[in-house]
Simulated assay, not measured.
Amino acid sequence: MNAPDDITRAVEAVLFAATEPMTLEAIRTHLNGAEVRAALAALQADYAGRGIELVKRGERWHFQTAADMAHLLRREHEEARKLSRAGIETLAIIAYHEPATRAEIEAIRGVGISKGTLDVLMEAGWIRPAGRREVPGRPLLYATTPAFLAHFGLASRRDLPGIDDLRAAGLLDPVDLAFARTDWDADAADDGDAEVETFDETH
Score class of each variant (00 low, 15 high):
residue 159 D to R: 04
residue 159 D to P: 02
residue 159 D to T: 03
residue 159 D to L: 00
residue 160 L to W: 07
residue 160 L to N: 06
residue 160 L to E: 07
residue 160 L to K: 05
residue 161 P to V: 06
residue 161 P to A: 04
residue 161 P to N: 07
residue 162 G to T: 06
residue 162 G to L: 02
residue 163 I to L: 15
residue 163 I to T: 13
residue 163 I to V: 14
residue 163 I to C: 05
residue 164 D to G: 00
residue 164 D to A: 11
residue 164 D to M: 07
residue 164 D to C: 03
residue 164 D to H: 10
residue 164 D to I: 05
residue 164 D to Y: 02
residue 165 D to E: 15
residue 165 D to M: 07
residue 165 D to N: 07
residue 166 L to W: 11
residue 166 L to S: 07
residue 166 L to A: 12
residue 167 R to W: 10
residue 167 R to S: 13
residue 167 R to I: 12
residue 167 R to F: 09
residue 167 R to N: 14
residue 167 R to Y: 11
residue 168 A to T: 13
residue 168 A to Y: 06
residue 168 A to G: 10
residue 168 A to V: 08
residue 169 A to S: 08
residue 169 A to Q: 10
residue 169 A to E: 09
residue 169 A to M: 09
residue 169 A to G: 06
residue 169 A to Y: 02
residue 169 A to T: 01
residue 169 A to R: 11
residue 170 G to F: 08
residue 170 G to P: 05
residue 170 G to L: 08
residue 171 L to F: 06
residue 171 L to Y: 05
residue 171 L to N: 05
residue 172 L to D: 04
residue 172 L to N: 02
residue 172 L to G: 04
residue 172 L to I: 11
residue 172 L to Y: 05
residue 173 D to P: 01
residue 173 D to K: 10
residue 173 D to N: 08
residue 174 P to W: 01
residue 174 P to K: 01
residue 174 P to F: 01
residue 174 P to L: 01
residue 174 P to S: 02
residue 174 P to I: 02
residue 174 P to C: 01
residue 175 V to R: 10
residue 175 V to M: 06
residue 175 V to D: 11
residue 175 V to L: 10
residue 175 V to K: 09
residue 175 V to Q: 10
residue 175 V to C: 03
residue 176 D to A: 03
residue 176 D to F: 01
residue 176 D to N: 00
residue 177 L to M: 06
residue 177 L to H: 02
residue 177 L to V: 00
residue 178 A to I: 02
residue 178 A to V: 07
residue 179 F to V: 04
residue 179 F to L: 03
residue 179 F to H: 10
residue 180 A to I: 08
residue 180 A to V: 08
residue 180 A to F: 01
residue 180 A to W: 00
residue 180 A to C: 09
residue 180 A to T: 04
residue 180 A to M: 03
residue 180 A to E: 01
residue 181 R to C: 02
residue 181 R to S: 03
residue 181 R to M: 04
residue 181 R to V: 09
residue 181 R to T: 08
residue 181 R to P: 00
residue 182 T to R: 09
residue 182 T to Y: 07
residue 182 T to C: 06
residue 182 T to F: 06
residue 182 T to P: 04
residue 183 D to L: 04
residue 183 D to G: 05
residue 184 W to Q: 09
residue 184 W to E: 13
residue 184 W to D: 12
residue 184 W to S: 09
residue 185 D to L: 13
residue 185 D to I: 10
residue 185 D to R: 14
residue 186 A to S: 14
residue 186 A to Y: 12
residue 187 D to L: 15
residue 187 D to A: 15
residue 188 A to S: 12
residue 188 A to Q: 14
residue 189 A to G: 08
residue 189 A to V: 12
residue 190 D to L: 14
residue 190 D to A: 15
residue 190 D to R: 12
residue 190 D to T: 15
residue 191 D to E: 15
residue 191 D to H: 15
residue 191 D to P: 03
residue 191 D to M: 13
residue 192 G to W: 11
residue 192 G to M: 12
residue 192 G to P: 02
